[in-house]
Simulated assay, not measured.
Amino acid sequence: MMQNRSFFGSLPPITKNLIIINFLLWFATITLPRVGVDLVDLLGLHYFQSSKFNAVQLVTYMFMHDPNSISHVFFNMFSVFMFGRTLEAAWGSKRFLFYYITTGIGAGLVQEVFWYVLLHDQIAMVAANIGWEATQLQLNQLVTIGASGAVFGILLAFGMLFPNIPLYLMFIPVPIKAKYFVIGYGLIELFFGISGIQSSVAHFAHLGGMLFGLFLILYWKKKGIGNNGRFF
Results as ranks from 00 to 15, higher is better:
Met62Ala: 04
Met62Ile: 09
Met62Trp: 01
Met62Asn: 01
Phe63Cys: 06
Phe63Ser: 07
Phe63Tyr: 14
Phe63Ile: 11
Phe63Gln: 09
Met64Trp: 02
Met64Thr: 04
His65Arg: 07
His65Cys: 09
His65Phe: 12
His65Leu: 06
His65Trp: 05
His65Val: 09
Asp66Met: 00
Asp66Gln: 06
Asp66Val: 02
Asp66Pro: 03
Asp66Arg: 03
Pro67Gln: 03
Pro67Met: 09
Pro67Gly: 06
Pro67Phe: 01
Pro67His: 07
Pro67Ala: 01
Asn68Gln: 13
Asn68Cys: 05
Asn68Met: 13
Asn68Pro: 03
Asn68His: 15
Asn68Tyr: 11
Ser69Gln: 10
Ser69Arg: 05
Ser69Val: 11
Ile70Leu: 08
Ile70Ser: 08
Ile70Met: 09
Ile70Cys: 00
Ser71Gln: 13
Ser71Asp: 10
Ser71Arg: 13
Ser71Ala: 13
Ser71His: 05
His72Asn: 14
His72Ser: 13
His72Thr: 12
His72Tyr: 02
Val73Trp: 00
Val73Phe: 00
Phe74Arg: 04
Phe74Asn: 01
Phe74Met: 05
Phe74Glu: 00
Phe75Val: 15
Phe75Ala: 02
Phe75Met: 09
Phe75Lys: 04
Phe75Ile: 14
Asn76Leu: 04
Asn76Ile: 12
Asn76Lys: 07
Met77Trp: 08
Met77Pro: 12
Met77Lys: 12
Phe78Ala: 15
Phe78Met: 14
Phe78Ser: 11
Ser79Leu: 14
Ser79Ala: 14
Ser79Arg: 10
Ser79Cys: 13
Ser79Met: 14
Val80Phe: 03
Val80Ile: 15
Val80Pro: 02
Val80Trp: 02
Val80Glu: 08
Phe81Ala: 07
Phe81Lys: 05
Phe81Arg: 05
Phe81Leu: 15
Met82Phe: 04
Met82Ser: 10
Met82Trp: 00
Met82Arg: 07
Met82Gln: 05
Phe83Tyr: 10
Phe83Cys: 04
Gly84Arg: 03
Gly84Tyr: 06
Gly84His: 03
Gly84Thr: 10
Gly84Ser: 09
Gly84Cys: 07
Gly84Leu: 06
Arg85Cys: 05
Arg85Lys: 15
Arg85Asn: 13
Arg85Ala: 11
Thr86Phe: 07
Thr86Val: 12
Thr86His: 11
Leu87Trp: 01
Leu87Asn: 08
Leu87Glu: 08
Glu88Val: 14
Glu88Gly: 11
Glu88Phe: 04
Glu88Leu: 12
Ala89Asn: 13
Ala89Met: 11
Ala89Trp: 01
Ala90Cys: 02
Ala90Ser: 09
Ala90Phe: 02
Ala90Gly: 04
Ala90Asn: 09
Trp91Leu: 11
Gly92Thr: 10
Gly92Gln: 05
Gly92Leu: 03
Gly92Ala: 02
